[in-house]
């Protein structure tokens, strides 16, 4: 099959043990091609799991998976800048740039571009390719028409997020801390309480968004399992699964089964619905509509 299942970086604040166990299991059991690894959301979380990274990378590599290190999405302080620069200048690793500072450090050698860098059109795609990008994970709000136009001219591999809560925004403010009446500087790492993000509802009690530290995400779980064939038709062959606390091995296997034609999409959607414990699905962006909407196969599993 000419389709590739990749695992995005863990976006949530998981304990070091959970983090390590998760990756070891994914290394051993999940049919993944590339695994993106590293802290993308909040630099304050990184020291906790950083010591685990070498062992995780080794285990993944040993299991035949390609490892790519992802950089921070919002780089502001000196410490964050140094963190990104050190990662980008490491020998023998492939790095995914999630902001322009990382792009600047990585240009001239093979690297990948993450979904937090704005590649909306052929012009920016061409610049990135010229600078050495070989794999580009596209922003979540791009509609099918844009994906198709990009795939027509792309030399790099293009990827879209096919599963998981959608990253919608980042901020200098930490909303997890703010919700607990804490300042960002003394946040007590309250984001660790919500392994899949903290629900944010409207005043009439409707589920709306999810808070993950400085990041705001969709309440819904993006799900393009019904669009996998169509995506390949327009030239997108890389699919990113974004980690959640559910059984991600099973999620990966479900996607693989559909890609291999071993499972009907309807059955797969039911299965993912069970795995995510009923969290509503969405795929509106793909259809050029509200990102919160669910169309096609997942329509009845929407908000």
């Amino acid at each position: 099959m000419n389709a590739h299942l990749n695992l995005g970086p863990v976006l949530f604040n998981w304990s070091a043990d959970t983090f390590r166990d998760f990756y070891f299991r994914m290394a051993d059991e999940a049919p993944l091609e590339t695994v993106f690894l590293g802290e993308v959301v909040c630099s304050k979380r990184e020291p906790f799991f950083a010591p685990e990274l070498p062992a995780i990378a080794e285990r993944l590599t040993a299991a035949g998976k390609k490892v790519v290190f992802s950089t921070l999405a919002l780089v502001m302080t000196k410490r964050e800048r140094d963190m990104v620069q050190q990662l980008c200048e490491m020998d023998g690793v492939i790095v995914e740039a999630n902001d322009i500072s990382a792009v600047s450090y990585l240009q001239g050698r093979p690297h990948t571009i993450g979904p937090f860098v704005n590649i909306y059109n052929e012009g920016s795609l061409a610049v990135m390719e010229k600078q050495g990008a070989t794999h580009i994970s596209l922003p979540g709000e791009l509609p099918r028409s844009s994906l198709q136009a990009l795939a027509k001219t792309a030399k790099a591999d293009l990827e879209v997020q096919a599963f998981g809560r959608q990253p919608l925004a980042v901020s200098a403010r930490c909303y997890h801390a703010r919700s607990h009446g804490l300042a960002k500087d003394s946040c007590q790492y309250v984001c660790a309480k919500d392994p899949d993000g903290m629900d944010l509802d409207t005043l009439d009690g409707d589920a709306f968004l999810a808070v993950n530290g400085i990041q705001t995400m969709s309440y819904t779980c993006a799900n393009l399992i019904g669009e996998l064939d169509d995506l390949q038709t327009i030239g997108i062959h890389h699919f990113r699964l974004s980690p959640h606390s559910c059984d991600m091995v099973d999620v990966t296997k479900t996607f693989e089964a559909v890609l291999k034609g071993q499972m009907e999409t309807g059955e797969a959607v039911e299965k993912l619905n069970d795995l995510m414990d009923g969290l509503p699905f969405s795929n509106g962006y793909y259809y050029g509509q509200e990102g919160a909407k669910a169309k096609g196969m997942v329509e009845e599993f929407g908000l």
Binding site: D194, P195, D201, L203, D204, G205, D277, G278
Partner: peptide, 20 residues
């Protein structure tokens, strides 16, 4: 009535185990 509806919506989601 609206308060009741809001509470019910929340409960409904809790039952399906999504809100921790």
């Amino acid at each position: 009535l609206e308060e009741t509806v809001t509470a019910l919506k929340k409960q409904l989601r809790r039952r399906s185990g999504k809100t921790t």
